[in-house]
Structure formats: C-alpha cells, structure tokens
Design a binder for these strands. Structure first.
Lengths: 338, 338
DNA sequence: CTCAAAAATGACACCGGTGTCATTAAAGAA
DNA sequence: TTCTTTAATGACACCGGTGTCATTTTTGAG
C-alpha cells in the first residue's frame, strides 16, 4: 500500500539532498545537475510521492485552478468545451472549476469576482456571451487576472482569443443553399443576447447580397436558440403566401423545430423544403432527415484557449494571442436542389 | 477596490481579537460569545476578507474538493448530474472536480487513485458504471475515502447510495404498453457494461410474466445505448414476420433510432407502432412524434448524493445512508392503443 | 595551477490558516 | 463570598511546500 504519507522531506532524505533541491527537480527549474535529477526522480518514484497542492499553492501563491464560465442551454456544446479545457488542464497539471452562470442576472460580474477571490483562480476561460461582456473584461483587466475568450466578436488586442468566423460559415451555408437553386431562403436568428446571432445573420445577408437576392424581412424570424422558438418561427415562415423553399436556422435545435413543423404540415424535407442548422449538435444526426449543418471545432477551440491561458499564467507568453480555427460545412439529407 | 490583500491577521487586528478567534467564527465553532462573533463578522465584512483555501487546506488537511467520476456518452445526463452536484457543493463551500473516464480502460482504478492523491480529494461521487465497480469500491474503502454512489445496483450497507428503481420503472412502462393492448412488445437492451441495462430488462420481463405474456427472445435485441444501435435493433425487430406493435428501448437515443427506422419503413408511429424510451433526454421532446419515456430526477439525485457525501465528510453522519427517489412516466405522442 | 565567474546546492524564513493546550473570564455550587 | 466547573479566548507550533540569499562546487580563462 503506497499510502500518501510521504512529504518532500522523506524524498529529500532518501535522495540525500535538501528539500529545496527536490522542489527544483519537481518544478523543472534550471541549474540542477542531471545526476542529482535522476537520483531525486528515483526517490520520488519509489516512494510514490505526490506533492501537496495546498502547500504548493500557499507557498507560491497559486491555486493551479482555472475557471470555466458558461451559460449555455446547449449541453453538448458545454460538454465539448469542458472536454477540451480538461484535456489542456490535465496536460499541464491544472484543474478545472466549472461555473455555470446566468448571464443576464444583474450581479454576474460580482459573482464572478467573488468566485475568483474565494477560489484564488489562476485564470479564467470565458465562453459566450461572457466573452463579450464589457464590464467583466474591464474587471479582469483591472485585477490583472489572465483569461482567454472563446468566440469573441469584439477584439481586444492584448487579450487571448480563440475566434471562429461565424459570418464566414453562415455565408458559406447560405451560398450553398443558393447554389442548390433556392432564392426564397428563410432565416431564423439566434438569441439576441448572443453576439454570434448577429454574425450568423450577417453571413446570411452577405451571401444574399453577393448573389443579388433582395433581403426580405418577412423571411427573417427572431428565435432564441431553443427548440420551441424554432417551431414558432417555422410556423410563421411556412404560413407565408410565398413560403420559403429553404430555411436556415442559427442552430440545430431550432432547425429540429422546423423539421417538426414541416412534418406536421406535411411538407416533405428535403423535397419541398430544405433545412439547414448550425453547430452539429448530436440531435442533428438523430433526427430524420439528418440535418445539414455547420460543425465548429469546439473541443479544439477550448483546448487551444486553455493552452494559451496556461502559457500566459506561466509567463511563457504565447507567440499568437489570437487563434482562428476553421468551421466545416456538413452536408446531410435535409437539403436538396430546388 | 476591495483587493484581496487581507489576511486573517488584518481581520483579527481590526476586531481586536486573536486570529484563532476569527478562525473560530468563520468555521462556526462552538464557544464563541455572540458579541465577539458580531464584531468579527463586521470586521470580515468591512475588509471583504476571504479566507485563503490553500492555507486552510494545508492546516486542516482538507482540500474542499469533491471529485465527480463519469463515463457517459449522454451529455445531457452528465450535465444534469453536474448541475446537482455543483449546487450542493456551492451550498457547503466545496468545489467540484469533474473527471470523465473511460470505464473499460484497464487502469481506471489506478488513475482514480492517482487523482485522489494528487488532488487530495475530500470525497468522490460515482456514477454508473463506476458505482458498481468492485475493485474501485474496495480501494475507496481501504483508503477510507468518503464516497457516494448514484444508481448502484449492488448494495453495500455502509456506503452512501442514491438509488433509483429501474426495475420498477421499466415494469411500469411495460405495463402501460400492455394496458394499451400491446402483446408483441419489442425490447432493446442497453449497453451490457451498464448494470441498469439488466434492471430495465428485468422490469420488462416482470411485467410480461405478471400479464401472462410469454417471453419471446426474438423480441429482445441487444443495443448499446446509442442511436445507431437503436436503428440496428429496430431494423431487426421490424423485419420479423410477426413484427412487434410496440418497442420499448432502454434509452431515448435508441428509441430515436427506432423512430427513424419506422419512418424509413413507412410505419406510422404511434398508429402502427408504439415506441417508448427511457431517460427523458432533451431529444425525446425534439423529435416527432415526441417520445413517451421515463424521467429520472437526475439533478435531484446528484444533489442528494453530494449532500450526503459532504455531511459524511464533515462527520455529521446523515440519518439515511440510502435515498430512493421516484421516477416518473412521461406519456407523450409516440404511444397509442393497439 | 590559480582565481574569478558561473553553476549547483542548501539553510531558513515564510505563505495563511488550524490544532493543541494553556490561560483567563464567566457561571454555578456550596 | 469563595471555590469549582465550564465557557471563552489566546499563544504558538505546525501543515508542506517555495523564495531568497548564502554557501559550496564546478568550470574555464589566463
């Protein structure tokens, strides 16, 4: 039984060096002779020694804790972000503290500040809509806490960002629908509090303009990223006299709502109506017909963001402070030529 | 700016007491005069003092960290568990360390042990299939680490459990289908590594027996809790000469697969085929027709488990060590009389 | 071979709390 | 009132590492 009763002193004694030297080896500090490094490592190994993170933290004024802030009803998105962040944390010996929040609660910033202090976080990862939260950004800068933002829309050059070009992807999806022969293309906007909603809309508009299709407000409905709002919007769109031949929803849940309404109205997808979503959520392949959608490398984004953050915490300034990862169009069965 | 430059000494000085007394107040220890308690609290308040968790942990040999172990492809389940556990942790000043694992990797137990020591966890929450992992349970007992198990099937009386009677719920669902007039009822078993799979199957069998319906092996297919396996099983079931008039899948993903196959085969649900799922996953209401399913109070279960665990850690032994929460049948549009 | 510069190591205080035990103040019994 | 018991508080070592700086060892130039 290798019970963890061992302290750094035990290791030092066994290796025949001072505990400070053991500390040096474990923290990969410079100026340690290779031979002593080996002796120490062996002692560590044979005792099964694990440093006490509390003691380490206290002495070095760190917590090795990184906070992940989110407010997203899309559980699969959250799960993917967690996965990426966890992977990066594990690799560098950090731990992840997940912190769901309500973004439109009026004291969010205070709550986050309180969390930072009470847990002594070393850094923070922000997802939308927090990435674009002005007062939060201001606070973090003021207290000088390193942080990384995922999918921010407003840039700030001295901060760490992992961006994904939603305008571009929405543009490409719309262009794809146009290339299939669609002209009357409905669009369901995402939640107004989420900056990406505007971006996706912009991509849609850009594609229309480029193809000389007039923007028609009645084809654009305001949704809220959830299934029900998708249904509502679809009902409105599909009751129009000149109903659209394609509907592009700003996420997959809403697109699923469209499919349901189409089915109820006996409108066959994709023959009479093409439907496209966004996010490549699990549901997109679990419904029938499977959804054409946009896949974001969410896990990879979170991984990069966390890695950047940890590098910064360790004062090894990363070369790039802004990383751009490409999205991918996934064509499935819900879209067809008109 | 209430920067956290304050230590317990500052508070003690301001309140005119020793730091030990401040510590007593903050930890709600007995034998503190009410008047001094107030003075101290006020000093804490006015300085915006937050105790340093690292120092606290080092001195008291605690981490205030609870680990949550899971391996579940069902992201919404994981998310619900996290939510419940987080709520309980927050309430009691603990933090949650999430730890996804691969349950059939051969060194899981070692990995978990390593996690426990390197993070100095105060306790562990186990979900399936870890709740029933024999060697893990043995390890935890040996090293005397408090832990709580969610949905265990094998009982161990000196451990903390939050059980949910899957046999009962599967029984009720099957009985419900029988009450609708179905006799040829297909069943899709869950992943063989998950103990609940057997339980749900047992519930199905129990209902058949009780209603004098002969168990027919060809109506029972082995799935793996994922969408694709649901499709596969459905294809097999629906190609039988005497095809079932109802299919009960052990979770909603597989049930969704059944719906897809039914749609492909032009079998109308629920008129020609009733379909039931299990879990009340988000997908169950996002597909058409919406799934009849079993709702487990997952968030509540995790909350209770975590609360029990924290009470135990704090040596306030909970009165009940095993909690039983009722499931709920949710009837939607995918089931109808035959 | 000598000596200055650089590299490797060690001694020790310190991080900010809590545990233990001694001490003092309040309460109750005689 | 005095003495005993109990409640309230404080002094101080200690938890297990790291930072700083002093000391020793090694390296390399002259």
């Amino acid at each position: 039984m290798t019970l963890q009763k061992h302290t750094i002193n035990d290791v030092a004694k066994l290796a025949g060096v001072s505990k400070k030297t053991v500390s040096r080896v474990l923290n990969e500090e410079a100026n340690v002779r290779e031979s002593t490094r080996l002796v120490v490592m062996q002692a560590v190994e044979s005792l099964g020694y694990k440093p006490n993170p509390q003691a380490r933290g206290l002495a070095s004024n760190q917590s090795f804790l990184i906070g992940l802030i989110y407010d997203n009803p899309n559980k699969s998105y959250v799960s993917d972000v967690q996965e990426g962040a966890l992977t990066a944390c594990e690799e560098h010996g950090y731990h992840l503290l997940i912190q769901p929040m309500i973004h439109d609660q009026n004291d969010v910033v205070d709550k986050i500040e309180s969390l930072i202090y009470s847990s002594r976080l070393d850094g923070l990862i922000l997802t939308q809509p927090f990435s674009d939260n002005k007062s939060l950004n201001t606070l973090l800068k003021k207290i000088n806490l390193p942080y990384a933002r995922i999918a921010p829309t407003e840039m700030m050059d001295d901060s760490l960002n992992v961006v994904c070009n939603d305008v571009e992807s929405a543009y490409q999806m719309t262009r794809y629908l146009i290339s299939l022969g669609h002209i009357k293309i409905g669009f369901i906007v995402g939640h107004p509090d989420h900056p990406v909603s505007q971006q996706r809309l912009n991509g849609y508009i850009k594609a229309l303009q480029e193809n000389k299709i007039e923007y028609d407000a009645k084809y654009v409905q305001q949704g809220f990223f959830d299934f029900n709002s998708g249904e509502d919007c679809a009902r409105r769109l599909l009751s129009l006299e000149e109903r659209p031949t394609a509907i592009f929803a700003s996420n997959d849940y809403m697109a699923a709502g469209v499919l349901k309404v189409a089915s109820q109205k006996q409108i066959s997808v994709p023959h009479q109506l093409s439907v496209a979503g966004y996010d490549n959520a699990p549901i997109s392949s679990y419904i029938w017909p499977a959804l054409t959608t946009v896949k974001q490398p969410v896990t990879q984004q979170a991984l990069m963001a966390t890695t950047l953050l940890i590098q910064t915490i360790r004062k090894k300034m990363p070369e790039e402070t802004t990383i751009n990862l490409e999205n991918q169009l996934i064509i499935r069965e819900s879209t067809a030529p008109f």
